[in-house]
Design a protein around this nucleic acid. Structure first.
Lengths: 130, 130
DNA sequence: CTTTTTGCAAATCGTTTGCATGGAC
DNA sequence: GTCCATGCAAACGATTTGCAAAAAG
């Protein structure tokens, strides 16, 4: 594996990911970091986001609505995705023991704890709909 | 909403989705149906898969690995996605009451039962890796 | 000086769409 | 005859990649 060298751009991306709980898309990260480094390119943002995900300093979250999202908070927590607005929201539940227990019984494989994505309707969208 | 008219192609797609538990990608469906209808186009496959998903006769499953997948079995069940090989596997667990209970307590929104996707390593990939 | 990172543009991948033709009803 | 569905190709959005120049060590 190649040695990692410092870069201002990567640092700024990390900083932004750690400061927000919005689970921004690559494009949102790009637009934010662009304010500090106007010459940064989208390709660089993607390369760094993937790199951070690879070394475990960020999470890459796939959603059905408009591109992947990134999370700088790597402590164990679950994610919820609103099927109405597409937003990704943190779910700070206790570890769902029942899942691992149930799944262990009749499934050939290992389910990663805290890996799962829940879908539904977020509170905000529920209220707008009524 | 427009009235639905019969089409051989859609029928063949439905038939295939109901016959397999592989959760094929749109392209896999295309290649299969192409054997019966060599002139079918990928666009038609996509249109019908989305239509079936819209009217509730199929499930569209987003995964991080190479495109969405489709499932003709619409009875309530969970899905697991292998982070090594990308395959999607059915998880026929009892309904995970604990999830709804836990989540209901401290989450503003509604989690759809059976909507969640689990990630991990499938048995086959586990054994290959050792 | 060597290796990594960048910015840029072109390429790629999965998916959607516009349009003229064909099939269902 | 009226709509809906099809095949085809072009368009699209998100992401990746090749490459020469710039920055880090």
């Amino acid at each position: 594996m190649a040695t990692l060298k410092y870069s201002r751009q990567r640092e700024s991306i990390k900083e932004y990911l750690n400061s927000t709980c919005e689970h921004p898309t690559a494009d949102a990260v790009y637009l934010h970091v662009k304010q500090e480094y106007p010459n940064i390119s989208l390709g660089t943002v993607y390369r760094n986001l993937n790199l951070l995900a690879d070394i475990g300093e960020a999470l890459k979250i796939t959603t059905p609505y408009g591109g992947d999202r990134f999370d700088g908070h790597t402590h164990p927590h679950y994610h919820f995705c609103c099927t109405t607005c597409g937003r990704v929201i943190d779910l700070d539940l206790e570890q769902l023991q029942c899942v691992n227990k149930e799944a262990g019984r009749n499934f050939d494989g290992i389910i990663e704890s805290h890996s799962m994505m829940f879908y539904g309707t977020c509170g905000e969208c529920m209220r707008k709909h009524s």
